[in-house]
Write a protein that binds this DNA or RNA. Structure first.
Lengths: 226, 226
DNA sequence: CGCAAGTGTTACGAACGGGTGACAACATAC
DNA sequence: GTATGTTGTCACCCGTTCGTAACACTTGCG
């Protein structure tokens, strides 16, 4: 499954040059010639990354970048700016615009490909970290502290949420009660291991049909199965 | 403990060049001049990686690679292909052959060493991740606490699982009942050694056809054979 | 063959592990 | 203050699992 990259520039030569090199590097390329088209395609096709020319007719590249950041659908997409003015670099990378990298024209296509790879790689490892976890119909939004089953919210207490999150993060692998105590209750915990059982029960109660994911491995511990 | 690398090429100059550089880099090097010898040594010595020339007398390197992939003993060993034809690269890396990397001749020995390091590093972190033992059709996934035969799950109790895992980990070597008691039941179990027999029996029952791997060594103990 | 030691097989009571309901100790909200 | 929610603990219950003993079978040996 190739990653899609949107190239935005009004000069068709630049677009072609970039597109050729990116295709060579194994990416899917779509392009846009002006800001409006760029925004539309970005929102409709959700590329993995956008290469954006600073100077665009009518709506400036700057504007496109800002608007992309404002729309939650495109806010997370990395942007690389192409610019002729070295003096604008600070603004490009600053918070105002939030581009992820830049290149000054004329640029080497090879260099561009390398930077794209780097950014996508970084993003990938970050995504794996943050994780709003989705297990079929079960969703866990870690930063927001929300869990839901088939779109319906599940009310969980803090410990229950932590416990569930941990099990999901280590899905498949069996976790012993000691391990769970260490990682959910933080270490020390002079807490009885049977307490874990009680919490598992409460979790199962609240999860309802989704409780089938919580697997007991007798003599060992608990496990989240898909 | 040095990692062993098998270098396969019919030109002794190439072999020597590669061997010299690999030894310099801290690897143990064994070599083979043709496909048949390569397969034999690969299977017998289980090197950490194989450097394979595309062109070999009689049996092509391609063939060696395919056959290695087919044998479960060597299927997991990474292969780096040396080739003169840039046009064949896709095939080399594709699913058909499953080589892990390639270099076109003439190549820089330095480059080769770097790639080997990279591949072995990648493999290492991967192996640490999936701690599953595969013995032909029998698979034991320790962290998931799952055992299966020909893809079908086998329900084992905690002790049975431990016992099986231990035997598999020490496959080939006979384990006395005392040893098994110590290592599976932990501490100085005051347990009767005959208990082991009972558990072996239960294991064999549950394993069904896979029970043939569990070997009794009269007067000594038990052993897992391939 | 006959014996003894080693191993397989069977059966069973006891112990264990985990589900469950109840409850006290808190914390928090009202 | 009361009401409510959360959390750790306990006691009880039940099915599973385990260890053992008794018995049957196999093997090696004189």
């Amino acid at each position: 499954m190739k990653q899609k990259i949107l190239v935005v520039d009004d000069e068709s030569e630049t677009v072609e040059l970039v597109a050729f090199n990116l295709k060579q590097a194994g990416y899917d390329v779509i392009s846009a010639a002006d800001g409006e088209e760029a925004l539309k395609k970005a929102k409709a096709q959700l590329p993995a990354l956008v290469v954006l020319d600073w100077m665009l007719p009518e709506m400036e590249g700057v504007e496109v970048c800002k608007l992309m950041r404002r729309d939650s659908a495109t806010a997370g997409i990395p942007v690389i700016m192409l610019t002729a003015k070295a003096s604008e670099i600070d603004r490009v990378l600053g918070l105002e615009l939030g581009a992820d990298d830049y290149l000054t024209k004329p640029f080497s296509p090879r260099e561009l490909v390398l930077r794209i790879k780097k950014i996508l790689e970084r993003k990938k490892s970050k995504d794996a970290d943050v994780q709003s976890l989705t297990m079929g119909e079960l969703t866990i939004d870690v930063p927001r502290h929300l869990a839901s089953w088939k779109g319906k919210k599940i009310d969980l207490t803090a410990t229950e949420f932590k416990l569930l999150t941990l099990l999901v993060q280590r899905r498949g692998r069996v976790q012993s009660r000691d391990q769970l105590l260490r990682d959910v209750w933080e270490y020390d915990s002079m807490i009885d291991t049977r307490t874990v059982d009680t919490h598992m029960r409460r979790l199962r109660e609240k999860l309802g049909p989704a409780a089938k994911f919580l697997d007991t491995v007798r003599g060992v511990g608990y496990r989240f199965v898909e």
